[in-house]
Computed example of a mutant assay.
Amino acid sequence: MVSTVQNTDVKQKDADCAVVVAVTCRAVFECGADDGEDVYGMGVAFPLLQAMQAVNGRLLEENPAESLLFDVILITTDSQHQQQSSRIISSTRHYGLEVGRFCFSSEEDFIESLLKNNVQLFLSTDRNKAHEASQKGVLSALLDQQVAPSEQLRVMFCGDAVIRPDAESTSASRQAAQSFSAQLGEMRRRFGMLDSPLSIVMVMSLGGRESCGGALQTLRSRGLCVDEAYCLAGAPRSPIVSLLRSHFLVSDGFSGLED
């Protein structure tokens, strides 16, 4: 069973134009046992939500009628959390989080809840859930658990997957990645070169300059131009990833920042 509740504290986004992002409740809040507190503690997804809100805020400053905005859905399959739904909603209100909807579903209906809400990007700290969603055609990524609070949303793209998609990725997940790339690219073009609240990074682990150039061309053909590009030519990816501190990594299949 899937139950979706609108957040009446925020203005609902245009369903035809918004970029719908679902984030797990466990990533947003430290949802432990009932400790008597009125609100949950802040989880690892707080920097992400703050950065997305900053992007939305800047877009609306430039154009109050802007419809290309991030539409965040908070989703949970934990029965204990669902029994404390009022606490989740009040916690969102307490922290001033711009969450448009709350989605409560069973484990069995988890994928249905994503599809029913037209989710274009699913973010979680649970590798199994992210992989499951990706296999069903929903673009998914793991959240970096060490990102410091920042008003700039930093999104990393895997250049290797752009030109050589993972054999395990489905055509639906690859199409989802391309669609998200186009929307993100359009959003990035709303801002100038300097002082942008949104930054696109590409990291190429394998190959040389030609491979890197090919990946950049492919992304441009999808409508996405990057702010920074790194060609590692076979060197380990972890060191540069730890320095860049992007919020999440987009691949044509499914990948985590620590890979």
Rank of each mutant, 00 (worst) to 15 (best):
L153H: 07
L49C: 10
I89P: 05
G96W: 00
M156Q: 12
Q120Y: 01
K136Q: 14
A51V: 05
S124V: 09
Q145D: 13
P165M: 06
S85K: 00
S169H: 06
S150M: 09
R93K: 08
L69F: 09
A45Y: 12
L123K: 14
E151G: 10
L121G: 10
G159H: 11
D109C: 12
R101I: 02
Q146W: 09
D78M: 08
R127K: 14
D78S: 13
A54M: 13
V155M: 11
A148F: 12
E132K: 05
N117I: 00
S169R: 05
D166M: 13
N128Q: 15
S124K: 10
V99D: 00
S124A: 15
E112A: 12
L69N: 12
M156P: 04
G96H: 04
E98R: 10
L48V: 11
L114G: 11
F157T: 00
S169I: 02
I89M: 07
V99I: 04
S86W: 01
I163H: 06
V72R: 09
L115P: 00
Y95L: 10
E62P: 00
A177F: 02
L121F: 11
G57M: 05
S171I: 11
V162S: 04
E66D: 05
I88L: 07
N118Y: 09
L74S: 03
E112M: 03
D109W: 07
G137R: 08
E61W: 04
A172P: 04
G100D: 07
K136P: 03
F70A: 09
V162F: 04
